[in-house]
């Protein structure tokens, strides 16, 4: 019974990790950049939503889309001001730029929202804890899981059906070939960053609503998503979902049955093993260079 509870909680929490993971994967897939600023971008998104709700006094169904719009703007700005001047520079330099960006965004958050914790007002998301037998499922986590599934369904639709989505898949396959086919890859990069910012914002809102927001620890949520990304494979969007859920389950089960203290580190130990024995991740493309 307890095991079931740990499993269910793990899956539900894993949904939030999956959102962060997909934000990393989207950018990596299209541009080969590992975005170190993902934590700060998601925290920023959470703060936008907070500002709409608390400062603006708006209901959630306006605030959350509003925050997503802001996220799109931030994503576009980041791409335009930081990434575009660095196009065709060495990859490590660009990764370094995302690192600098993370510090910059932290500074902005400290200036606007101060370093003190802030919390969302309660009952933004209706409902209460669902009990199935002895297994409790918090409505917040259920909502989070629902939002994650919707977001992933949206992504799937976007990549399967829309023209931009198809172009993005093309770009992630081969930059030069896509350019030769008339795809404006700079625009595609911008769209990628916007999408990643949107996914991050959802995670930031859920994290902030679940706990509280602070520039110091909200970005740390990204650290939970790193192993999820590798489990799923850096280039696979369904992999990000499954990787996220898997990390949630590992944390839940190891933490619950052995020692909660082991939860996080066990994910990293497993990550190390996966990298040694199945280096492309569970769903990554086999074409990654192996030695």
């Amino acid at each position: 019974m307890l095991t079931m509870q740990f499993l269910v909680t793990g899956i539900l929490t894993g949904g939030i990790y999956a959102l962060v993971a997909v934000s990393i994967v989207l950018i990596y897939k299209a541009t080969r950049i590992f975005n170190f600023a993902v934590g700060e971008m998601l925290a920023l998104g959470g703060y936008f939503c907070y500002s709409f709700v608390v400062w603006g006094g708006l209901p959630l169904w306006i605030s959350l889309p509003g925050a997503l719009v802001m996220a799109v703007i931030v994503g576009a700005l980041v791409e335009r001001l930081v990434l575009r001047p660095l196009l065709s520079q060495p990859l490590l330099t660009i990764i370094m730029a995302t690192l600098a960006l993370s510090v910059l965004l932290k500074g902005i958050m400290l200036m606007v929202w101060t370093g003190y914790d802030v919390g969302f007002p309660k009952n933004l998301l209706p409902g209460k804890t669902v009990l199935v037998g002895m297994i409790a499922m918090s409505h917040e986590l259920l909502w989070a899981f629902g939002i994650t599934l919707v977001a992933f369904a949206g992504l799937a639709y976007f990549f399967m059906k829309t023209r931009t989505g198809l172009k993005m898949r093309g770009v992630s396959e081969d930059h030069e070939l896509s350019m030769a086919c008339g795809v404006n890859i700079v625009t595609i990069f911008a769209v990628t960053w916007m999408l990643a910012a949107v996914m991050g914002t959802l995670a930031g809102f859920l994290m902030g609503y679940r706990l509280a927001l602070a520039p110091s620890y909200t970005p740390l949520l990204a650290l939970k998503a790193f192993p999820a990304v590798i489990f799923g494979g850096l280039e696979s969007i369904p992999g990000a979902l499954i990787g996220g859920l898997l990390i949630g389950v590992i944390e839940g089960l190891v933490g619950g049955l052995i020692d909660p203290n082991l939860g996080e580190v066990s994910a990293y130990i497993l990550l190390l093993l996966v990298l040694i024995f199945k280096p492309e991740g569970l769903f990554g493309l086999k074409r990654i260079e192996r030695v």
Binding site: L86, V103, L104, L110
Partner: peptide
Amino acid sequence: SGLSPFTFGLVILLFLIYEPRG
């Protein structure tokens, strides 16, 4: 509270943009 990290990030970012080779 925020100027220190802001400046830190900004200086490095500008540096990378104008001198990407270090």
